[in-house]
Design a protein around this nucleic acid. Sequence first.
DNA 1: AGATACAGTGAACACTGTTCACGAAAGCAA
DNA 2: TTGCTTTCGTGAACAGTGTTCACTGTATCT
Lengths: 242, 242
Amino acid sequence: MTARAEARDAFRRRLIDAAYTRLATEGAAGLRMRQLARDLNVTPGALYRYVSGRDELLTILVIDAYESLAETVRRAEAGVPRTELERRWLTVWVTVREWALAHRNEYQLIYGTPVPGYEAPAETIAPASGVTLLLAQISSDLWTARGNGAADPAPVSLAEDLSRIAAWVVAHGMSVDAPGAMVLATVEAWTTLLGAVGLELGGHFRGSIHNNAAYIELLARRSYAALRATILNDRVREGADV
Amino acid sequence: MTARAEARDAFRRRLIDAAYTRLATEGAAGLRMRQLARDLNVTPGALYRYVSGRDELLTILVIDAYESLAETVRRAEAGVPRTELERRWLTVWVTVREWALAHRNEYQLIYGTPVPGYEAPAETIAPASGVTLLLAQISSDLWTARGNGAADPAPVSLAEDLSRIAAWVVAHGMSVDAPGAMVLATVEAWTTLLGAVGLELGGHFRGSIHNNAAYIELLARRSYAALRATILNDRVREGADV
DNA sequence: AGATACAGTGAACACTGTTCACGAAAGCAA
DNA sequence: TTGCTTTCGTGAACAGTGTTCACTGTATCT
């Protein structure tokens, strides 16, 4: 590797780091090319030797954010014994929230309003699936450990979507034997989780929920209970007439 | 009223209308003072006679969006017979989603990432409560019509938050006798609803849910069932041992 | 009718992202 | 080592942004 290529990579790294810092401290709007040039003691034009423009920088940061979130959650979840399914589930919820609080701007970058004039390109799709896959894994583990229970029927109106999700899960190397109702409950959990975090970050709980940690934990427990309840066995044992 | 004051009001109205149009067609980023000036055949400086700046315009539009959403949902919900609680509940969910789809940018303006450098001022808080109040009303009606059921106990960790919500509901002229567990289920529903709409608008269901109409309806039904289930009476009748 | 308040102008200021011709330096081949 | 080529960073420029301000002309009020 030539000295030039090395210097090039090094500077590109510095640029991305500077961009990351600006994003973290000032949000997506603080990501200004001219400001980054000042941060790096260079004229604005020089940046375009390393990056095609502001959009590419944003794409890099989007991917970075997805990966950072997924990695953080994966690491936390890996620390919980495999058999303690509910604790694993809970850990995912809590860790997502904590990451979001610690990385507000990165979170908004990926799950907030799309940045004006910026359309997330295809390469951002793959890294976006990290956390959902983790939930799917736990859900799948629950199904495997179910004993001899059957599952709720899945609604026909979503049959197509559910088989799409199943295919996608298979494509990520997981077994798909989890039934539609469980898959759906997992998607539902994902929806509620991101809803709760988004509302908290947006300050929409100002007049209601303040103890957001307790709230998210409650939501996590409920969603896990709902997930379990999709396995008929449990309910039947309890004598419900569903 | 003098002719001048009249013209002043008329122009201010025209300005807000133009801003609304730009927001709807191009998003918050398309809301450019200079562009609005061109739209109105006037120099940019003239706008500052009617509005203190871009932020005030945004605030007006934020309030407008909250009110438009609340009004739309209120009207739809009012069309359903009072006693059909589940249909009323469902109508709220579906209408919120439909409004969001028809007014993507307005929705993002209120529930998406806060616009860079813009902090929503106090006067936006009141109009934000429209839809939540509607859900609270249905939930309260359900409680009133419960027969002689008791309610689940509410978690102590959220007791403070729940009483804050109760106080806020009272301040809006509703009776508060609905128990904590129901209030919580209502907040939970709100969380999931906004989560689902936000994810759909953000394109985060691209690899999974496509039939979003069916999905939101399913979520609505489930959340209503959960709301009902907070009233012990029902569950006891079904023989569950919770 | 005269004083006053106000609307709109046009120029300016300080920014932004992006492009481009140019000179300097580095890498490579003979 | 010499010469050619590729790359780098600069500085200036372009087109755009929000906002301010001295200055007119016109409408309102006394």
